[in-house]
Design a protein around this nucleic acid. Structure first.
Length: 272
DNA sequence: CTCTATGTTTAATT
DNA sequence: GAATTAAACATAGA
C-alpha cells in the first residue's frame, strides 16, 4: 500500500476513527512488528490515554496522545489500517489491535500487515526516523533552491536520489517512476548533470503524480493494490514492455536501479 | 521450482 | 569517507 498518497489515505482513516477516543486495550498478535520493544511497555504507555491527533510525514504516521506519548507507525510494504466493531473476528494478517472507546461505545482499529516490514514505535519525543525526513512534498512543498542543492551534492542516479527519504519524504518506487516520466527525465541521469529546467520539471512531476495518487485514494478503499484490484491507474508504472502512452511508438524499458524495478520510455525521457 | 512485489537497514566490496 | 551492490526481513501470488 504505502507511499505518500496511500499513507495519507491511512492518516485520514485514523483521523476519522481515533481522535477524542481513549485506548482501552492493545493486543499485539505478532511481536516482530515491535522490533524488540515489549508489549507491556506499550500497554503501559498507551492504555488509558486519549488520542489527540494523527499526523503524517513522508511514509510515517504519528498518533499523539495526551500525557505526551506518541505512537509511530510505518506501513512497510504491505501494512494498512482497518476499523471493525470491537467484537468482530480477527482478520487474516492482523498484527495489532487498538480497542478504543468514546463513552460506552467501543470499536477496534486494527493494523494488518502480511509481510511484516512495517513497524511500531512508542516514544515521548519524535523519533530519529521521523525527524530525519526531508521535506514532505505535499505538506511543505519543494523549495527549488534546497531541492537543487540536495540533488547536486552527490552524483547518484536521479531515481536513487528521489527514493532517499532525507531528500524528499514520501516518494517511493511507484511515484518516482511516474514523476520522472512526467518530467521527461531518464531515471539513470546523474543528479549532478541535471539542468535547472529538468529540476523544475522533476519537482512539478513529483507534485503532480503524488496529487494524482491522493485523488485516486480519496474516499474510496484503494482499488489498485487491493485484492480485487481494477485496472492499473498509473501512466507507466507496471507497464514495462507496453508501448509508451505519450509517444505511442516506443516500447517502455524495464531495468533495475537502486535494486528496484524501473520503467521508463527511452524516447521521451532524456538521459543527461 | 522460478520470479515478482508499494520499504528500509545493514553488511560487504570497491 | 563515498559509492555501489547484494542480502536480509516475511509472505503471497503468478
Amino acid at each position: 500500500m504505502p507511499e505518500l498518497p496511500e499513507v495519507e489515505f491511512a492518516r485520514r482513516q485514523l483521523d476519522a476513527w481515533m481522535p477524542k477516543k481513549k485506548i482501552v486495550a492493545i493486543e499485539v498478535f505478532d511481536e516482530r512488528i515491535l522490533r524488540g520493544a515489549s508489549v507491556k511497555s506499550i500497554e503501559r504507555a498507551l492504555v488509558g490515554d486519549k488520542v489527540l491527533d494523527v499526523a503524517r510525514r513522508g511514509k510515517w504516521l504519528r498518533i499523539t496522545f495526551d500525557h505526551e506519548t506518541k505512537l509511530f507507525s510505518h506501513l512497510g510494504m504491505s501494512g494498512h489500517w482497518i476499523e471493525r466493531t470491537a467484537d468482530a473476528p480477527a482478520e487474516r494478517f492482523e498484527r495489532v489491535r487498538l480497542t478504543v472507546a468514546h463513552g460506552r461505545k467501543k470499536s477496534s482499529v486494527r493494523y494488518l500487515d502480511m509481510r511484516l516490514f512495517g513497524r511500531f514505535v512508542v516514544a515521548q519525543e519524535d523519533i530519529p526516523e521521523w525527524s530525519a525526513l526531508g521535506p514532505d512534498p505535499i505538506l511543505d512543498g519543494i523549495d527549488p533552491a534546497a531541492f537543487a542543492k540536495a540533488l547536486r551534492s552527490r552524483k547518484r542516479t536521479v531515481k536513487e536520489a528521489l527514493l532517499d527519504q532525507s531528500i524528499l519524504a514520501g516518494v517511493g518506487n511507484i511515484y518516482v517512476t511516474e514523476a520522472l516520466f512526467r518530467a521527461r527525465v531518464d531515471p539513470r541521469s546523474r543528479t549532478n548533470t541535471l539542468t535547472d529546467a529538468q529540476l523544475k520539471a522533476i519537482a512539478k512531476g513529483v507534485d503532480a503524480s503524488l496529487r494524482a495518487g491522493i485523488a485516486l485514494t480519496a474516499g474510496e478503499e484503494l482499488v489498485y493494490l487491493s485484492e480485487e484490484r481494477g485496472a492499473n491507474p498509473f501512466e507507466i508504472y507496471g507497464r514495462g514492455g507496453k508501448s509508451c502512452p505519450r509517444c505511442k511508438k516506443t516500447v517502455l524499458s524495464r531495468i533495475v536501479l537502486g535494486g528496484r524495478t524501473t520503467v521508463f520510455c527511452p524516447h521521451c525521457q532524456h538521459l543527461t
